[in-house]
Design a binder for these strands. Structure first.
Lengths: 210, 210
DNA sequence: GAGGGGACCTACTCGCACGTAGGATGTCCG
DNA sequence: CGGACATCCTACGTGCGAGTAGGTCCCCTC
């Protein structure tokens, strides 16, 4: 007789015991799959547990609740994004290359970890304070790093530079998200460079005059 | 004895009878308030009914379900957005002014109807097919109108122009959303013009050279 | 002033999914 | 070998909110 397979799509076989930390990592990974695929609300704790080949109480021994589980994942990815952005801006001192590197960073970010970027950019929990806070804060951070560079080289006021920074980061986010849905119609390099060129020509139009 | 007031914040007095169409309009208005404030999931049909000064079954005599009610509102606002965008692009034949008008359109859009733009840009139902479809479709439409103009005046391929269009529309959306949260730190005209200038300098960097 | 229709209400059902109680089973050390 | 500890399970409590059944009230018409 074979091991029973539940009706749930690809539930892993029950029975393997794991040390605490390994199990935790696996639960996070399973949760990420489910949250990314279904969004927060449509994701069931039962399904996350099933996908990890484990029962629900185990899940609750690692995370106090559904929201905290989600936040743990969200933190991982917003930090990832901010770090990529920071590194891109620090990778060179020539601004034209900085712009290119930053767009690369966003395109890289949406290309990794399945489609984990959805947790950050398309969360169906943005109305919940702790989530909203994290997402906005991280985008704000990216924008501020960008606007700091802008302010160095232009005569913009702080408020203006912030708006420009937000706009540019938004453009990077949106274009990267769009590109990732058109699997292969444009090669990654070409897309990055196209957008970087658009952005660079745009900002370099703000000399010290205003 | 006075009319009783329920504990729910600003519920209207029960008792006024309305003809069918007027009631429907009022229900839509109440629903918009609640959906915008709380998002789809946290919005309760009871609260929508209460806010309209009516009981729940009345709501169900006008809309078959919560989702349909939401979609009715969503349709209104995505159409509004696309129309504003279309009119902006048709308002002149000089491309520099077109860019300005388009940014104005987005800033106008986020300024109207309370914060109804949240239904389109920050919906917590984007994982549900009919919603996703409407939102993406409408942004796609805006982007296509923009990319058509781009293709006329540059040597970009269709794919490239589409990506640029999406990026620009995304930038308009994000910057407008950000601006609206900073009530008054930058005047509307200034913000629009700043972003329009960024975009215009960017695109005008794509001459017929490809 | 009787009858019909439309607007409306109170009070309920019901399913779903988060979170939990209590118990079983394997592993490691004295 | 025996007990303690940690991992894991089945089975349930519970609350919330969408959607509904059935009846009331009022106006308008004949």
């Amino acid at each position: 007789m074979e091991t029973r397979v539940t009706a749930t799509p690809d539930a892993k076989p029950r029975g393997t015991r794991l040390p605490r930390l390994a199990r935790r990592r696996q639960l996070l990974s399973a949760a990420q799959e489910v949250f990314v695929q279904n969004g927060y609300h449509a994701a069931a704790m039962d399904e996350i547990a099933d996908r990890a080949g484990v029962s629900k109480p185990v899940l609750y021994q690692h995370f106090p609740g559904k929201l905290e589980l989600y936040l743990a994942l969200l933190d991982l990815h917003v930090d990832d994004m901010v770090n990529r952005c920071r590194e891109a801006l620090a990778s060179t001192h020539e601004n034209k290359l900085r712009v290119q590197a930053t767009f690369s960073a966003f395109f890289d970010f949406v290309s990794t970890q399945g489609e984990a970027f959805r947790l950050v950019f398309e969360s169906d929990l943005r109305n919940v304070a702790p989530v909203r806070q994290r997402v906005e804060r991280s985008l704000q951070e990216c924008a501020e790093m960008v606007s700091a560079v802008i302010q160095e080289d232009t005569g913009c006021t702080s408020d203006e530079a912030h708006l420009l920074g937000i706009g540019l980061v938004g453009m990077a986010e949106v274009s990267a998200r769009y590109w990732v849905t058109t699997h292969g119609s444009i090669p990654k390099d070409a897309a990055e460079q196209l957008m970087a060129r658009l952005a660079w020509r745009g900002i370099s139009g703000f000399p010290r005059t205003a």
